[in-house]
């Protein structure tokens, strides 16, 4: 059944691989049974655990890498998905939302700032920028988690560190094996003082982290147009119809989820 005729009907996909990324985040690789989903980094899909429900998830891979989603066990749908394994069937519809304007970033230094599961929409960007190094300036990745075990994609850190400067931090302290930085993500931004000149900062994480990261970047001289984030919201339809994700007169699902801080500052409500 093609998704085009009935926008609420998901395509069927088989889980081909599940990988534990952290104690509560799994990476799901999906194979579509039929049809195709053409997406760009920053967009999201709505995934069904049939019998439990649907929830929105950002694409965590580049299209050429296959369909991958990093899903943290949080509510009923994510718990049900965590119970599934290879061969199990899920539904997927999308893509929804805007995307990162990657063309616009060409020639600029890129600062990627992630916290916890917020690394999911940033991972395809990291892969993109590393693969196309010549098109962009320096790449700095700041990634924070609660404990060393809570870093998703730590199996890729070596690759990331080869193509970029990777700065990791945990908070709160209390992991004796951790030899790295103990700090909250905004504090790492403050400490590393990335230059705003010709830069774009892209951040995603818990709302409270985003708020403080924005504050630190502004203090360093970043203009609101140079700071990009991707917002989360409760969503049902993904098409601007169910009225669940509006922030003032903008829909996170249609106008977002990628917004510059300049755009966010014009939103009527808090996100």
């Amino acid at each position: 059944m093609p998704s085009g005729s009935d926008p609420f009907l998901p395509l069927l996909a088989e889980i081909s691989e599940v990988r534990d990324l952290t104690p509560d985040i799994k990476l799901f690789k999906l194979n579509l049974r039929e049809g195709r989903i053409d997406y760009r980094p920053g967009q999201f899909a709505i995934i069904s655990a049939f019998g439990v429900g649907e929830a929105p998830f950002t694409f965590a891979s580049l299209p050429e890498e296959g369909l991958e989603f990093a899903i943290r066990k949080m509510g009923t749908v994510t718990s049900a998905l965590h119970d599934l394994g290879p061969g199990d069937l899920v539904g997927i519809r999308g893509p929804y939302g805007n995307a990162f304007p990657l063309e616009e970033y060409k020639g600029k230094d890129i600062i990627i700032i992630g916290g916890g599961i917020g690394i999911a929409p940033l991972r395809p960007l990291i892969h993109w920028f590393i693969k196309r190094k010549g098109d962009y300036g320096d790449l700095l990745i700041i990634y924070g988690a609660r404990t060393p075990r809570d870093f998703a994609f730590s199996h890729e850190f070596e690759d990331w560190a080869r193509g970029a400067r990777l700065e990791l931090a945990i908070d709160p302290p209390g992991a004796p094996e951790w030899k790295g930085r103990v700090a909250l993500v905004p504090a790492v931004v403050k400490e590393l003082k990335p230059s705003p000149r010709g830069s774009i900062a892209i951040t995603c994480g818990p709302p409270i982290m985003i708020h403080y990261v924005i504050q630190e970047l502004k203090a360093l001289g970043f203009s609101p147009g140079q700071i990009v984030t991707t917002l989360e919201a409760k969503m049902k339809c993904g098409m601007g119809k169910c009225m669940r994700c509006n922030v003032g007169n903008k829909y996170v699902c249609k106008d977002g989820p990628v917004f510059t801080v300049e755009q966010i500052s014009q939103l009527l409500e808090e996100f």
Partner: peptide
């Protein structure tokens, strides 16, 4: 026209239900 979408499990699958909701 706010709405909610949720699943009700059936014996071997699901029924996806859309219902009125409100902001």
């Amino acid at each position: 026209y706010c709405f909610d979408i949720r699943d009700y499990p059936t014996r071997d699958g699901a029924e996806r239900v859309r219902s009125w909701d409100s902001c």
